[in-house]
Design a binder for these strands. Structure first.
Lengths: 328, 328
DNA sequence: GTTGGATATGAGAACGATCTCATAAAAGGG
DNA sequence: CCCTTTTATGAGATCGTTCTCATATCCAAC
């Protein structure tokens, strides 16, 4: 409740001097500094951050838009983002879009209302053209998901390569009837499917559209997909799952129906989350360096905030690799 | 960049009137309202939230302190909190303490610097007496974790009952050599151990201290614990794990060592997260109504913010139940 | 002893909104 | 038609900081 004015009065000094002490400015004698500290302690003073933000015209806060926190991929990504953020005195405002276009746009308004200094998008629900105008209000960076039409910094993985590696691994294990599961809404999903298809085409393997499943990354969904597969006349011998979660669900349900993994059905995961090592057999999966991706992204954000020169199209691509375990 | 002043000028009105439109106050003619809307659109105006917060003396933001987001328990809890928060026009500021006392206190300072209107604690690292003073600066509510010495609202489960139920189930299945794993730093952990011990004592079962494991909830830790158990001369036949994550890790590692669950080792989980249904055998576990706990907590917060009358010691206890599956 | 640069402090404007108060016009009631 | 209430608007203070500018003191250099 105490204001800087109260502190100034008690210390017998001006607001300016107190402010200098708060902000560690030079040109304050040690003696008065102590007076200020004492007064602050006495009055239990803390600077009002709304006032500071209003005056300084910055918030030192970055909004991070994620689809959901219950998908473990994102907490890990946040881990990386946060590490670098705190090192640079930045706060994260974590926003769940729940795959909702309106929510996504609302959260972007945080930039316009000056509640955050920048936004990191880890997914994208809206068309890019409806997002682009927000760039006027502050730096927007994409991480994980991406849009080639968007001229903003991107930290991403080469999804084409990742899925190509995965598909090739399945093929090398003799599979010719390969199902695919993934989200194709974003460019990330589209590219991933592209890499998958490329590997199949390269090996003269036909792609049956009935083996293409589109859906969200969850254990539940994995179970659903396996049931759908069982209902097919012509069943695949392998499945490229869009995430470790889906892969785990598929395996669980498959075993429930008496299938042996990988003998009856090979399952390939994506992400390499802790769950990949938990299921049995443990998942062969495409590893995404999630934490590093978060760190790198925040580094880019920090440099964006520091300098005005907007090198628009920085694209940072992180390595992706195949982790071979027992499910293929 | 446009301010309310600019809007007022363009619309040919005063700041007051524009403010009234923004805040949906009565006593503005439809005609002028339209003028304001047009001017706002024309200038691409958005109210500066720092200015609003400063003037209104509230932020409509609640800080939620969690130990970590990578423990899936907390994303689910947040889900519940957020549901009710958005219904009431509140924003969440999610803060990871990473089990760090200093971070926890720093985040509580958000209350003093008026960056948030209230704080929800889902865990507690510091002693209560060092937290208590923060109550002066705004409502603090505990959720999940609790302290009997703290006179603040609490939404919790009866951990004693929960662990008692779990332990009894193990005993009913003939187990007499039961290991226990859990965190005993907080009162939650202490109570949980209390309930466990009560069930054993009630059945004249001896509690061997070498079977008590203390550690954090993670798959990795579960694996460690199983290895530790294998190294014992006198091995338990059942283990009460502190969380589904630990239980999953134990099971995974146990099978790796050729043990059959539950025949060679019965494993009881806690929480009933999705992972409980994933592992094999699926986990018998003590369900915590996580989402409901979050919702209830935010409801309490909302009513706290609305009224000044601080009924200090509201304790809301939610039902806890045993979910029987295949791991015991 | 004057000059000049560093050091030290304070007064007052600014940041961008909302809120109180005063005032005026319109509406209703006898 | 006058008085009271309701409706409608604006002027100016206010929220709690920081920042610019003016001014004052100190110390060293010539």
């Amino acid at each position: 409740m105490a204001t800087i004015e109260d502190v100034a009065k008690l210390a017998g000094l001006s607001r300016s001097t107190v402010s200098r002490v708060i902000n560690n400015h030079p040109y304050v004698t040690e003696k008065k500094k102590q007076l200020v500290y004492e007064a602050m302690k006495e009055l239990d003073f803390f600077p009002n951050s709304s006032a500071q933000r209003l005056r300084k015209q910055k918030t030192d806060t970055i909004a991070v838009l994620v689809p959901s926190l219950t998908n473990p991929f994102f907490p890990f990504l946040i881990e990386g983002l946060e590490n670098v953020a705190v090192e640079n005195g930045l706060q994260l405002l974590i926003c769940q879009t729940h795959q909702n276009k309106d929510k996504e746009r609302n959260y972007l308004q945080l930039l316009q209302t000056k509640q955050v200094d920048g936004v990191i998008l880890t997914s994208l629900e809206n068309d890019w053209h409806s997002i682009a105008p927000f760039k006027e209000s502050g730096p927007i960076i994409m991480c994980n998901e991406y849009r080639s039409e968007a001229s903003i910094p991107v930290v991403r993985l080469n999804q084409i390569k990742g899925s190509y590696l995965g598909a090739k691994h399945l093929i090398e294990h003799g599979h010719k009837k390969i199902a695919y599961c993934g989200n194709d809404k974003g460019e990330l999903g589209a590219d991933r499917q592209k890499g998958f298809r490329a590997a199949l085409v390269e090996n003269n393997i036909e792609i049956s559209e009935q083996w293409i499943f589109r859906d969200d990354p969850s254990i539940e969904n994995g179970k659903r997909i396996l049931k759908a597969i069982l209902a097919l006349e012509d069943k695949p011998t392998a499945i490229f799952a869009g995430s470790d979660e889906v892969a785990a669900g598929i395996i669980k349900e498959a075993k429930l129906h008496g299938l042996t993994i990988p003998h009856d059905l090979a399952v390939l995961g994506f992400d390499d989350l802790p769950i990949a090592q938990l299921v049995e057999p443990s998942l062969t999966t495409v590893r995404q360096p999630i934490k590093e991706m978060g760190q790198k992204t925040m580094e880019v954000m920090v440099s964006r905030l520091a300098s005005q020169d907007q090198e628009e199209n920085t694209v940072i691509e992180l390595p992706i690799e195949l982790i071979v375990r027992d499910s293929v």
